[in-house]
């Protein structure tokens, strides 16, 4: 069931990515120039943060499969913590852009930049809420080696959020 949802979400992002790519093809100069104004380091740092966070979630799932609920909860908390780092970095990026007076209406590139990164940002927040709920239940001892669907569902969602960013970063920050 979660897969249907994940694929539906991926479809939404996929269409946004393709819309970006094709809108760029009609306005290459503008896109290339605007892209240079982005903070690539922040984007790359956030990629590393999400990848590592995803890795922690994998470890959490492995821990619960070995019936180590406490370790599972610790990995989950670490993953949420990294999610928090992503949020902070992203917010500072957003703040810098809006301080420079750049918004949705600045140009087509920034329209895509804002809508895609913000839409993804909302998914990060939702993913963190889900992971926190799973963490809470894991601490209560709700999961075991035989029954941990909740952990796997939350994990899959978080990996989806990671996967989307893995495409978004090179597409918006690097490719020209």
């Amino acid at each position: 069931m979660i897969w249907i949802f994940i694929y539906a979400e991926l479809l939404v992002f996929g269409i946004l990515f393709l819309a970006y790519a094709f809108a760029r093809s009609r306005n290459v100069v503008l896109f290339n120039a605007s892209q240079l104004e982005l903070n690539r380091t922040a984007g790359a740092v956030n990629t590393l943060v999400l990848i590592t966070s995803s890795y922690f979630v994998v470890r959490a799932v492995a821990a619960i499969r070995a019936d180590r609920a406490e370790a599972c909860a610790r990995w989950l908390l670490a993953a949420v913590g990294l999610g928090g780092v992503f949020v902070v970095v992203k917010l500072s990026e957003f703040a810098a852009k809006s301080a420079a007076g750049i918004g949705l209406s600045t140009n087509t590139f920034y329209m895509f930049y804002w809508s895609m990164t913000f839409f993804h940002f909302m998914h990060v927040l939702l993913g963190m809420v889900i992971l926190l709920a799973v963490w809470w239940k894991a601490r209560q001892g709700a999961y075991s080696a035989s029954e941990h669907t909740g952990v796997e569902t939350g994990a899959s969602y978080w990996h989806m959020v990671d996967l989307v960013w893995i495409i978004l970063f090179p597409l918006v920050y690097v490719m020209r």
């Binding site: 380091t41 790359a44 590393l48 990848i51 690097v174 020209r176």
Partner: peptide, 26 residues
Amino acid sequence: RPCTLTWLVLVSLTLMALAIGQAGLA
């Protein structure tokens, strides 16, 4: 673990993308 290896590959590829971006290659 396979997942740790995966993580290392992911990190390296991300650093490569960053390097390409910083160098402004196209």
